[in-house]
């Protein structure tokens, strides 16, 4: 820019012009060089393409709008989604699906493998629960039973209604997510949730140091990196569901307690046996029910009652608290 200011001085004009032409020359050389390089590159890639044509096998991939298409394997490029794209697809959800979970209480023996798998996937401490198991007792003279309890992904979610900043939201595929880049930490949603399904990061998350070193992109479908002063909750493993896998807890269970699937297709798959069954049949034959239906929250998690249990009834002292009768 200093040349421009020199223009005011008439004596320098010639010198300036000389400089200018030199610049132009360099520019031209640069352009030429770039053109050569580009041309060479084009020729090379064309050559490569020719060479690979025919030899490359075709693979099937699922596009973002859920179409199955075929492309040559070598054409596949891994794209790293930027923050905005991750947020956008995370907020929209998967079109055409309505995810559901079925939990068979007869099979649960409180292995708590679901809890462990969830906590390691979502970077949580032992008492930070997205899913937990509870010892339930319906009446004084009935036997207690174990009940895994994730977020119910209510169709009429009170937590979403009360959130002041749209940090927690309901997607078209039925999943209720939390965006910890938006959450202001008011905890109104905790008060609103009748299932105690939400947790708060009262302190720095357990992996905070790692986040600082690696600075990973925030994926709203995994809610990692977790953040101090914000909410976290069960996400129905939206990141796995996107790539066609079962949630972390569902596959981790050794006892076949969890079924997960799509209500629209009326099919749920057992996480242990990988057996796929009709959702409607399963619920009908086993008298499936939802938790606290009287509240009108319309959960997307169904329970099958603990009849013909495979294991002994739980010991009443194991929870560290008195067993509270369910309401």
């Amino acid at each position: 820019m200093s040349e421009e200011s020199n223009n005011k001085v008439p004596d320098n004009r010639n010198q300036n012009e000389g400089r200018k032409s030199r610049r132009d020359f360099l520019k031209n050389v640069g352009l030429f060089g770039a053109a050569t390089a580009a041309g060479a590159g084009a020729i090379y890639s064309g050559y490569k393409y020719e060479q690979n044509k025919g030899s490359s096998e075709m693979v099937r991939v699922l596009t973002e709008d859920n179409r199955l298409v075929m492309i040559p394997r070598d054409q596949i490029q891994t794209v790293t989604l930027d923050q905005d794209a991750l947020q956008k697809r995370g907020r929209e959800g998967l079109e055409g699906h309505r995810w559901v979970m079925v939990i068979d209480l007869a099979k649960c023996r409180n292995a708590r493998k679901c809890v462990d798998a969830c906590q390691s996937a979502h970077h949580l401490r032992p008492h930070e629960y997205h899913i937990t198991t509870l010892v339930m007792k319906d009446a004084p003279n009935t036997a207690p039973y174990f009940m895994p309890k994730p977020c119910q992904h209510c169709d009429n979610p009170p937590c979403v209604s009360v959130c002041p900043v749209n940090a927690t939201f309901k997607r078209q595929d039925g999943i209720v997510l939390i965006d910890n880049e938006r959450c202001i930490g008011c905890r109104f949603c905790i008060s609103a949730c009748p299932y105690s399904a939400r947790m708060f990061h009262w302190q720095e998350p357990v992996m905070a140091d790692t986040y600082e070193e690696e600075q990973p992109d925030y994926d709203v479908e995994l809610n990692v990196p977790q953040r101090k002063g914000t909410i976290s909750k069960c996400l129905f493993s939206a990141d796995l569901v996107r790539v066609g896998q079962l949630p972390y807890c569902v596959t981790a269970c050794p006892n076949g307690v969890f079924y997960f699937g799509d209500e629209n297709q009326d099919a749920v798959t057992n996480g242990t046996t990988k057996e796929t069954v009709r959702l409607s049949q399963l619920l009908k034959q086993n008298a499936g029910y939802r938790l606290m239906p009287e509240l009108g929250t319309k959960p997307r998690v169904y329970y099958l009652p603990p009849k013909n249990r495979l294991f002994d009834a739980p010991d009443e002292d194991m929870t560290g608290t008195q067993i509270q009768e369910t309401v």
Partner: peptide
């Protein structure tokens, strides 16, 4: 003083949802 993220107070005005009693 009750907010987990007081730094995000402006969000209430930027992204405020009229359905929420907080608004």
């Amino acid at each position: 003083s009750d907010m987990g993220r007081p730094d995000r107070l402006p969000y209430v005005f930027m992204y405020g949802r009229i359905q929420s009693p907080i608004l």
